[in-house]
């Protein structure tokens, strides 16, 4: 196997390991979880109970980690396909790996205050995504035909780096939530945290829908299943957005259901993409071509990461009303 292929395999391996460690951390805490504090009603954002804040923060860390893992594996494949033509193409692999690592750390961490190192990495990841969007815009614009459908389909994907920014943003918000464990009110930039996370997640879901829609359109929706990620997540995003703006402290069954379905859809989508690779000429025996040119297997779990963040936000909204 050539060295370059090894790099790709190794990066995918790291991503999988990261996902597994998040899962393990989650299982460990679930096993030892404690009694849940009663809901406190208040007009201002209610101070989170210590345990509730840590739990919500860890859920957000976990969501940021799933998103980072998806970004890491998808970027590794796409930038390997692009022959790492520019050295900057390694950057998102580094920051996504770091984001994944600190998310695993945060998922396992029960301490009641933000972690400086994690904060730093999350900010870095968010910035990488912004800079990456700039690079991708430049790539599209410099191709023959400029901002054309052809280049939106086949040049550097414009929406992809934003997923890394989202991972960073969710992680950053996780740290803010954790900070409230000391009894502060869950606010960020003057806004109730639950609403902010819900808003960011809702917007992130819509962006991811746009990306999936574009690529599934490129694939001519050759399977009816390809409509699911442009049909279901917008419902979840809309309901969550509505929740972000609406009354808090209410049980929102439909929001929760749509987000849970979106969580599952992300993993099922990956399975469909595995099948999609098999559907290419030569199937999995021809993996060196088909993993790169077939549907990207690590992409759909981005929805899972975002939906998990949405569920965490919903928990904050429901349990800690601010109105």
């Amino acid at each position: 196997m050539p060295d370059t292929d090894r790099t790709a395999v190794a990066t995918s391996g790291i991503a999988l390991l990261g996902l597994a460690s998040i899962g393990a951390a989650h299982v460990a805490t679930w096993a030892g979880r404690r009694w849940r504090p009663p809901v406190v009603q208040a007009r201002l954002p209610a101070p989170l109970g210590r345990a509730a804040a840590i739990r919500a923060a860890r859920r957000l860390n976990r969501a940021a980690g799933v998103l980072a893992a998806s970004v890491l594996a998808a970027t590794a494949g796409a930038h390997y396909r692009g022959s790492f033509q520019h050295r900057a193409m390694f950057t998102p692999l580094v920051t996504a790996s770091l984001s994944l690592a600190v998310s695993a750390h945060g998922t396992a961490d029960r301490r009641p205050s933000a972690h400086r190192g994690r904060d730093g990495v999350y900010v870095l990841a968010a910035l990488t995504g912004v800079v990456g969007t700039g690079f991708h815009l430049y790539n599209v614009a410099s191709r023959q035909g400029g901002l054309s459908w052809q280049n939106l389909f086949y040049a550097a994907p414009l929406g992809a780096p934003a997923a890394l920014s989202l991972s960073g943003a969710l992680g950053f918000l996780a740290e803010r939530v954790r900070d409230t464990a000391a009894g502060e009110q869950p606010m960020v930039a003057g806004l109730p945290l639950g609403r902010v996370v819900a808003g960011v997640t809702s917007a992130g879901l819509m962006g991811t829908v746009a990306e999936a829609g574009l690529l599934h359109f490129r694939g001519a929706f050759n399977s009816p299943a390809m409509y699911v990620p442009i049909a279901l997540p917008p419902v979840a995003a809309a309901l969550l957005g509505n929740a972000a703006l609406g009354a808090s402290g209410r049980r929102r069954r439909w929001v929760r259901l749509s987000l849970r379905l979106t969580t599952i859809m992300g993993f099922v989508g990956a399975a469909f993409h595995v099948r999609g690779v098999a559907r290419q000429m030569g199937g999995w025996r021809n993996w060196r071509q088909n993993v790169l040119n077939g549907p990207p297997i690590p992409a759909p779990p981005s929805f899972t990461g975002l939906a998990m963040a949405g569920l965490a936000a919903l928990g904050l909204l429901e349990d800690h009303p601010d109105d």
């Binding site: 052809q150 050759n222 559907r279 030569g282």
Partner: peptide
Amino acid sequence: TPTPLATVSAPHGHSHPCV
């Protein structure tokens, strides 16, 4: 423009997409 071609860019029925 990209040329309209009679070869599929995504799976179609029993046809594999172009490699």
